[in-house]
C-alpha cells in the first residue's frame, strides 16, 4: 500500500474514512471502473440473448433491421461520438481549472445527449406508428411474425436500457453543471467530472455496438 500521508492529506474534500485525498480519489475511480464492469455484465445478458436469437433467426433479424431508419441511427451515432468528445474536453477543462470552458463543455454534452434522446423519441414513435412494437398490436406481413417480434423485443430492450442510461447521464450532467457554476471543481478536485466521464463514454460505447447490431445487419452484401 503506498504511503498516502503526504500531499493533500488535509484537503477539504477528504472524507473521514480516508487517510488522504489521493486515496479517496483512487478509491472513487476504482469504484467507478468496478461499477462499469457490472454494467458490462448487465448489458451482456441482453447481448447474449441477441446473439442466440440472431443465430436462430438470421432472416427475420435482417428484415427487422431494414425497417429501422439508417439516417436517424447514423445521425444519433455521430451525435453520441460528438458528446464523448465534449465530455473529454470537459474533463480536461476541469483538470486545468478553466471554469467557463468546463460549464460550456458540460452543457454541450447535455445538449447532445438530449438531441440523441429526442431522435430516439422520434424513432420510437415511428415504431408505434408502424405497429412494430411487440405485444398484441404487433403487425408483420411476412410469415415469420414471431421471430420478427423477437427482433423488435430485443431492439426495444437494448435501446431502451441504453436510453435509460442516457437519461440518468443527462440528469447527473445537470447536477454537475450546477456544481460547476458554483466553481466546485478545479485542478485540486475533479474526480466527479472524471468519473462521470467514464460513465458517459461507457454508455457511448454500448451504442457503438448497438448501432451495427441493430441497424446495419440487413444492409451488408
Amino acid at each position: 500500500m503506498p504511503d498516502h500521508a503526504s500531499g493533500h492529506a488535509l484537503s477539504p474534500h477528504r472524507q473521514l474514512q480516508f487517510e488522504s485525498y489521493e486515496q479517496q480519489q483512487e478509491a472513487a475511480t476504482f469504484g467507478m471502473w468496478a461499477f462499469l464492469i457490472t454494467e458490462v455484465l448487465f448489458f451482456g445478458g441482453l447481448f447474449a440473448a441477441y446473439t442466440i436469437y440472431r443465430l436462430k433467426y438470421p432472416a427475420a433479424f435482417q428484415k427487422g433491421s431494414l425497417t429501422l431508419d439508417l439516417y436517424l441511427g447514423g445521425f444519433n451515432t455521430a451525435v453520441l461520438i460528438g458528446s464523448s468528445l465534449t465530455m473529454a474536453l470537459a474533463v480536461h477543462a476541469a483538470q486545468t481549472s478553466r471554469q467557463k470552458a468546463l460549464v460550456i463543455f458540460l452543457a454541450a454534452t447535455l445538449l447532445l445527449g438530449s438531441v440523441f434522446l429526442g431522435v430516439k423519441v422520434i424513432e420510437y414513435g415511428d415504431k408505434f406508428h408502424h405497429h412494430h412494437v411487440p405485444g398484441p398490436d404487433f403487425r408483420w406481413r411476412a410469415s415469420d411474425r414471431g421471430p420478427a417480434q423477437l427482433y423488435f423485443s430485443l431492439y426495444f430492450a437494448m435501446t431502451g436500457m441504453h436510453a435509460l442510461h442516457m437519461v440518468v447521464g443527462v440528469v447527473v450532467l445537470a447536477v454537475l453543471i450546477v456544481m460547476a457554476l458554483r466553481r466546485r471543481f478545479g485542478a485540486d478536485y475533479f474526480t466527479p467530472i472524471e468519473n462521470f466521464g467514464l460513465y458517459w463514454h461507457f454508455v457511448d460505447i454500448v451504442w457503438i455496438f448497438l448501432f451495427p447490431l441493430l441497424y446495419l445487419i440487413g444492409r451488408h452484401g
Partner: peptide, 14 residues
C-alpha cells in the same frame, strides 16, 4: 407483462 416473446416458445422464444 407485455408478452414480448423472449422466453415464449409460441413466439419463437426459448
Amino acid at each position: 407483462g407485455l408478452h414480448i416473446g423472449i422466453f415464449d416458445p409460441a413466439l419463437g422464444g426459448d
